[in-house]
Design a protein around this nucleic acid. Structure first.
Length: 1165
RNA sequence: GCGGGUAUAGCUCAGUUGGCUAGAGCGCAGCUCUGAUAAAGCUGAGGUCCUUGGUUCAAAUCCAAGUACCCGCACCA
């Protein structure tokens, strides 16, 4: 028996698990690799997956692309690397490990082994490594379950090896880390590495600076309390500057007040005191969105500011003055002053009594030291430095008072203004986000804590410096990992200069010459970004243009150890080490302890070098590296030179233009002197839940991969109610991903999965099961000699021809990384062509009994089997890259075991199909398309005639403009009459339908008015068909009235007794009149239908013969049965027809045939 | 504010280089076939292809402006 019976309701996940076993046992993947060994290379570079948690379904999207394209290029004869990668290092992992170990701060980490920081770090780093190994293995198993063919590490022995020796790559491997060292050394050689002191966003919980890239991820709309503060002018008693801030804690570190010299400032008098503020802000509507602050552009297009529900609207500053004035009183504008006149005015700071304000060069001491060394300000204390400085155009009237509270230790631009004006920075908070000593009552308080703001307000009130407090809503950055509010903090971090072009004010940028940014941009021009609609190149270049220098340091534990060693006495003298060998050569202390360890903390920290210039010792900076260095180097650390550049990479694009794509381009540019790391990049969007909401664990609407693949689970609906769902399986997911437009977000969930399964998998399955079950019954031998295609009927040659077109589409689509185009075409083929036409039309050929067929009949039947076998096996190979399990299940049963040359072990060992041009018959395809249209129209005509298909009708008339349709009527007459149950089909030369035009008074009434009669006359005179054509072009003049297509309805009417429909140039009319003969035949068909139902209900098998008894009281029905007795008996396989009642064991049914009673009794013979 | 993208049926989306009366799935209404298939099929209703202007014999498609939404960048004192 060549085929095995096919179950009608398949359990796809269970089949997939069986196939996985089969692949493993038969070493199919190995065999595929051997087939391709030495063939042309196709180099895929995997973007590393973060090995920190089990996979979610969103991971499966990219991994489906990766596997599908890999498989396509394998089936087209390419040698592949099959190396997959894990992203291992960085804060992601640290945060999870902290949770596991219940640690709450960096101090907790350093106290893991009480009293021993070094042992603590070692323990923590090992915990991080363990977590990575654990989840890398989980993800490996899950990826295998998805059907992803890679060189996986599967055994305990594999996982016992070091990451460097495993098959997958790991960014924590020594190779990866040391390759980054080599990269940094090259940067150092070009003098791009520098140590920067700057105010950066800082996460107090994680104790790290947040780089520009990371900060983008964390903006959230939040409410803060903003305050207006009085700064009394020292030389103008009774007069104050009015400043505004959303971060009250920074007032402790106020050193200056910045104004815009070009602006005009008002002097507003209130209760005997004078306040200075910008003229433009005084009456401003502060709820209008910022921007458009130029005069004249005011009201027209101002949107409303983003705001939170429940927070009162901001009042204008004037309003505040009014309400502070009290009843019956008012403020008074007593003068104006140009901003430039205010420069240099001295004022009393809000917290001048704090010790921190009394420190020369700034505070704390470390900062003061650096400020002094760099000569950023004279020997002056914060308290003594308070004065009005220029902020230039950075001070605007769009927000606040036009006078900006300036704390150079607490804000990016403040720091720049401070340096420009010689103001000492006072830095109030430590790496935990809490106030240093020197800040009085605030010492130890966390700056982000709302009670800190309370304390500040209390202090200000005591001193009568608080003008007002308000609730304020704005977008504020948060830590992308732990969601803590970020604080701006003066830090000491390491940077790669991206070229000075965009920040001339930054004195630390190296002068002239090499611009890393520009070099990367050149490389970016050489790679292809897909899908085109995303304009990936433009996005990448936009990022390159705007990005600041790359902050590569993190004050953390688990990550790349930055290979930077600094002179113990001179913090500006440092060196970058480029390899393990160089380190060994240069080490004067610590090598023995380090040797045998990976280049991670704490062991690498033990190495001490000697400064060749000073003879001093050099120690490594404690920082670890930015994890995008880890992922960005992989084009070099993992791809051998003869596999570079990669042909293809694919990753979810949101964020990656500034992360992975950027890092790959940047590191490759430096490592290879301007060679691109890859040729083609396919970006894809984000997976959302089935209602279009972002998937999140807390929202309950994210789906874990294992749940989707095998286990089932629950997922929240649109209202958040958890609903159970059954396992979806890998291939339903994979097809869902393959058919998706990569540029748009994908809606994932049980509902879309059900749709896809019904639309594609089950349709194909049904065709396959139909074929196989009849092939078994008929003993079809796939090895039998082929009936020449030219001898097969039209319908066979048609589907083979369209199959070639599908192959053409498939190859073209894969070659341009557009698997969606293929998937949609394949669905169309399976649904419209294979299932709904070929199989439906050919059921008779498969049903026919061999014994009743002559030689020609047998040959025709064989042709049908061979055609369908070819279609199904070719489809298997076409879809194999997308749905490898499903294709394999079908293939295993369909492949021709009788013919060893084609009896491949696995569909994945076959070649991808190629187009056989000799099978393409374009005219046949056109004619069949026309046939399908005619049949559809015929069905519609039947609907219009209100005659069901079982009722035979006399004639169908077709009028057609198009040649293909005319040919189809003649060529496929038999199929048309059969499909539509008509006795004849005629191609007519005159249109069978009369068209009439009617006025739609509902829309046209008002236009026509009194001219109704004239218009009706004109309408009668006009040729409705010509009118219809004109209307398509635009409004038409009828008796002086302009009417458009909505005003005139063109209706098509058939002759009496007929019904018809029209589509484009084709008209179809059906004779709806029933003769007594047709009526009788229709009744007999109904009878057959009911008897078949009865057979089914009696539990009879397809091949069972019966004894039948039919009794009808209606003479009409009885006569119809008599007339068609032979046909009924044949259809229901009655070998004996009894007039009287059957024995009691018989199955009986009483039914109504078109209202006439019929009793059916039947018994198995 | 600067740059990019998108806008097609109630919803989710296809629509090649411009080509005849714009499609699918879901939902809705009506109907129907069936011994492969109710996890089905057919038919219908439902469209200002965002708006306006332009190019063209011809525009959902190309161009310009506008509107809305999304993304990136900048700003966020």
């Amino acid at each position: 028996m060549p085929f095995e019976k096919v179950e009608s309701s398949p359990d796809f996940p269970a089949m997939e698990r069986r196939i996985l076993k089969f692949w493993a046992e038969q070493d199919i993947f190995e065999k595929r690799k051997q087939l391709n060994a030495g063939k042309p290379k196709w180099s895929f570079l995997d973007g590393p997956i973060t090995a920190n948690n089990p996979m979610g379904v969103h991971h499966a999207w990219g991994r489906t692309y990766k596997d599908a394209y890999n498989r396509y290029f394998a089936m087209t004869g390419h040698d592949l690397r099959y190396q997959q990668g894990f992203d291992c290092q960085g804060l992601w992992v640290e945060v999870e490990v902290e949770k596991e170990l219940k640690l709450r701060s960096k101090r907790d980490i350093e106290e893991l082994v009480p009293g021993n920081v070094e042992a603590s770090i070692d323990k923590f780093v090992h915990a991080c490594k363990d977590r990575v190994n654990k989840f890398a293995r989980v993800q490996t198993d899950q990826s295998i379950r998805l059907g992803m063919w890679m060189n996986w590490d599967t055994t305990d022995a594999d996982w016992a090896k070091s990451p460097d020796e495993r098959k997958s790559y790991f960014t924590m491997s020594e190779t990866n880390n040391y390759t980054i060292w080599a990269f940094l050394k090259k940067c150092f050689a070009k003098k791009l590495i520098y140590r920067g002191y700057d105010v950066m966003p800082w996460c107090g919980r994680c104790g790290v600076g947040i780089s520009e890239q990371e900060m983008k991820e964390g903006y959230k709309l939040v409410e803060h309390r903003a305050c207006f503060v009085k700064l009394p002018l020292l030389d103008k008693p009774g007069e104050n500057l009015l400043v505004w801030t959303t971060t009250p804690w920074t007032l402790t570190s106020n050193v200056g007040a910045a104004i815009n010299p070009k602006l005009t400032y008002l002097k507003v008098k209130l209760k005997g005191e004078v306040y200075y503020l910008a003229k433009g802000v005084f009456k401003q509507d502060r709820m209008a969105s910022s921007g458009g602050d130029e005069e004249g552009e005011s009201t027209a297009k101002k949107g409303k500011r983003e705001w939170l529900d429940g927070v009162p609207n901001l009042s204008s500053i004037e309003q505040m003055f009014k309400s502070k004035a009290g009843k019956g009183e008012s403020y008074e504008i007593v003068g104006e002053v140009k901003g430039e006149e205010m420069l240099g005015w001295r004022y009393a700071g809000p917290f001048d009594e704090l010790p921190a304000q009394q420190s020369e060069y700034g505070f704390p001491e470390e900062v003061a030291k650096i400020v002094q060394q760099n000569g950023w300000c004279p020997a002056v204390t914060g308290a003594a430095a308070h004065r009005v400085v220029s902020g230039g155009d950075d001070v605007s009237e769009s927000e606040g008072t036009g006078i900006v509270h300036t704390a150079p230790g607490c804000g990016g631009i403040d720091f720049a203004w401070g340096k420009a004006n010689g103001l000492p920075p006072v830095a109030p908070i430590g790496d935990d986000g809490c106030f240093h000593k020197g800040f009085g009552a605030l010492e130890g308080k966390n700056a982000a804590d709302p009670t800190t703001a309370d304390a500040v307000f209390e202090e200000l009130k005591k001193k009568d410096r608080l003008f007002g407090v308000e609730r304020y809503v704005h977008r504020y950055p948060h830590c992308w990992r732990c969601k803590t509010e970020l604080l701006y903090r003066l830090v000491d971090e390491w940077f790669i200069s991206m070229g000075a072009a965009f920040d001339p004010a930054n004195p630390q940028s190296p002068p002239g010459g090499y611009s890393f940014r520009a070099e990367i941009a050149k490389v970016t021009n050489e790679v292809t970004f897909l899908p085109e609609s995303l304009n990936g190149r433009a996005r990448e270049k936009d990022w390159l243009k705007n990005m600041g220098d790359w902050m590569i340091s993190k004050k953390r534990y688990w990550g790349l150890s930055l290979p930077i060693w600094v002179d113990e006495k001179d913090p500006t003298d440092f060196e970058v080490i480029g390899s393990r060998e160089e380190l060994k050569e240069r080490a004067i202390e610590g090598w023995t302890e380090f040797d045998g360890h990976t280049p991670h903390r704490p062991w690498v920290d033990k190495i001490v070098l000697k400064n060749p210039r000073t003879g001093n010792k050099m120690h490594r900076v404690p920082d670890v590296g930015n994890p995008w260095l880890d992922a960005g180097i992989v084009a070099f650390s993992t791809l051998p030179a003869d596999w570079r550049p990669a042909d293809f990479i694919t990753e979810s694009f949101p964020g990656q233009f500034r992360n992975w794509f950027y890092a790959l381009l940047a590191l490759s540019t430096m490592m290879s002197d301007g060679q691109p790391p890859f040729k083609t990049l396919l970006g894809f969007a984000t997976a959302l839940d089935q209602y279009g909401q972002t998937m999140s664990k807390t929202g309950g609407n994210s789906i874990e991969f294992v749940a989707a693949a095998d286990d089932g689970g629950t997922v929240a609906d649109a209202k958040g109610t958890p609903l159970p769902f059954k396992a979806i399986g890998a291939d339903v997911m994979r097809w869902l991903y393959c058919r998706q437009n990569p540029a748009s977000n994908l809606l994932f969930g049980p509902k879309p999965a059900d749709e896809v399964r019904a639309k594609f998998h089950l349709k194909l399955w049904n065709c396959y099961s139909f074929f196989v079950n009849y092939a078994i019954a008929d003993g079809f031998d796939p090895a039998a000699a082929q009936v020449p295609v030219k001898d097969r009927p039209d319908i066979d040659r048609w589907i083979l021809s369209d199959l070639q077109e599908l192959i053409r589409t498939a190859r073209a689509a894969f070659e341009r990384f557009d698997v969606m185009a293929f998937a949609l075409a394949a669905e169309e083929f399976v649904d419209a062509k294979l299932s709904n036409w070929y199989v439906r039309r050919n059921r008779d050929r498969f049903w026919s009994k061999n014994a009743e067929l002559d030689a020609a009949g047998l040959r025709d039947k064989l042709a049908a089997y061979q055609t369908m076998h070819t279609v199904l096996t070719t489809l298997c190979r076409l879809i194999a890259p997308c749905v490898p399990f499903f294709a394999e299940v079908l293939w295993q049963n369909l492949k021709a075991p009788g013919r060893p040359s084609r009896g491949f072990e696995s569909v994945h060992l076959t070649d991808y199909p190629t187009v056989d041009e000799s099978l393409v018959d374009a005219q046949l395809s056109d004619d069949t398309d026309a046939l399908l249209t005619i049949v559809t129209l015929g069905g519609a005509a039947r609907n219009a005639a209100k005659q069901k298909v079982r009722q035979p009708l006399a004639e169908l008339r077709v009028y057609a403009d198009a040649d293909a349709a005319r040919r189809a009527v003649n060529r496929f007459a038999e199929q048309i009459t059969d499909e539509l149950n008509v006795k004849a089909v005629t191609l007519v030369e005159a249109k069978p339908l009369r068209s009439t035009a009617k006025i739609n008074m509902k829309t046209a009434g008002s236009k026509i008015g009194a001219k109704k009669k004239d218009v009706e006359e004109a309408l009668k005179a006009a040729d409705p068909d010509a009118l219809a054509v004109k209307l398509r072009g635009g409004p038409v003049d009828l008796a002086g009235v302009l009417l458009d297509s909505a005003d005139i309805a063109i209706e098509y009417v058939a002759a009496d007794g007929w019904a018809g429909v029209v589509d484009r140039g084709t008209q179809v009319a059906i004779d709806a009149r029933l003769t007594p003969e047709l009526r009788a035949e229709g009744l007999s068909r109904d009878v057959i239908r009911f008897v078949q139902d009865a057979r089914k209900n009696a539990g009879l098998d397809l091949s069972d013969k019966i004894v039948l008894s039919l009794s009808a009281s209606s003479p009409e029905l009885a006569a119809a049965i008599r007339t068609h007795r032979e046909a009924i008996a044949a259809a229901v396989q009655a070998t004996e027809w009894v007039e009287g009642p059957l024995p009691s064991a018989a199955h009986t049914a009483a039914v109504k045939v078109d209202g006439l009673e019929l009793t059916i009794a039947l018994q198995k013979v």
